[in-house]
Simulated assay, not measured.
Amino acid sequence: MTGREGGADIGPIGENSPVVILVRPQLAENVGTTARAMANGGLFHLRLVAPRDGWPQSRAWYASSGAHRILDAATVHDTVDDAVADLHRVMATCPRPRHIVKTVMTPRGAAAELRARAAQGLRTGILFGPERAGLDNEDMARADTLVRYPLNPDFMSLNLAQAVLVMAYEWWMAEDTTAPRVLMTNETRVATKGELENFLSHLTRELDACGFLRNEQKRPGMVRNLRHLFQRGDVTEQELRTMHGVITELARGRKSGQTPG
């Protein structure tokens, strides 16, 4: 068994999405998990520069969690120059300060720039260095821009797939339209103000009946606090029906307890 059987349907491959270029990767498993990270963020073009153990390596397919399509299409290059020859813009990840005069961007800024270049029909790529030492100065000399991750300065260690995932995530989020906050109501819906008012009237009637609101001086403030409580969130129609049932049962139990014998 090679590990290449099957594979997930990982979506359409955009022609101008950035190429992920792994420079001298050392472990096949890291190439596989990189493919998995790429698929998460919609990056589907993978190039390998002088992989230490050669290529292909079945362990990469095993580690990719179904991102076989990326590995199947990956190309191997002897040098960075060959890997970037057909690209218009190249970025390079740079975890350490270097004595280089070059624009440095955050992953978020880089992703926005990559999106803009893609919209112009330009092909782009991102260089990632070998696991142990990262890119050297000669590698970065082939790049237009450096990308540095603003992480905890006391601990900035990422493995190869994590580094790729950060860029893949930012690439995806640069055009993602998901609302930052949404209430999941499933089969119910948010209650209307009329439904909420009906419930509050029901609640107030029963609280009056049981004597909870017997202090006339405090009653307006207590009712107002209850109103604030239920108005504060997106109460659903199903939740109000449940609360109506709770109040009805409590009232029934109270009345039953007052019945002689």
Rank of each mutant, 00 (worst) to 15 (best):
M1I: 15
T2R: 10
I10M: 06
I10A: 09
I10Y: 05
I10G: 08
I13N: 10
N16V: 12
S17A: 04
V20H: 07
L22Y: 03
V23H: 06
R24H: 09
P25C: 07
P25Y: 06
Q26H: 13
L27S: 13
L27I: 15
G32E: 00
G32I: 05
T33A: 09
T34Q: 06
R36E: 04
G41Q: 00
H45N: 11
L46T: 04
R47I: 02
L48M: 07
V49E: 02
A63P: 05
S65W: 10
G66N: 11
H68R: 02
H68W: 02
A73H: 03
T75G: 15
H77Q: 07
A85C: 05
R89P: 02
R89Y: 03
R89W: 14
A92H: 00
C94Q: 09
P97L: 12
H99C: 06
G109C: 10
A112R: 05
L114K: 08
A118L: 00
A119P: 05
L122W: 04
P130I: 02
E131R: 09
R132N: 08
G134D: 01
D136W: 04
N137C: 14
D139P: 00
M140E: 00
A141T: 06
T145N: 10
L146Y: 01
P153M: 06
M156G: 13
L158I: 09
N159S: 08
L160I: 05
L160T: 06
A161E: 00
L165Q: 03
M167N: 01
E175R: 14
E175F: 06
E175Q: 15
P180G: 10
R181I: 10
G194W: 11
E195L: 09
L203H: 02
R205C: 14
E206I: 11
A209I: 08
C210V: 13
C210F: 10
F212G: 07
K218I: 13
G221I: 11
H228L: 13
L229T: 14
F230C: 08
F230R: 10
Q231W: 11
Q231T: 14
R232Q: 04
G233Q: 11
D234K: 15
V235F: 06
V235T: 06
T236W: 04
Q238D: 07
Q238P: 12
L240H: 00
R241L: 04
R241V: 04
H244S: 12
G245D: 09
L250T: 07
G257E: 01
Q258L: 14
T259A: 11
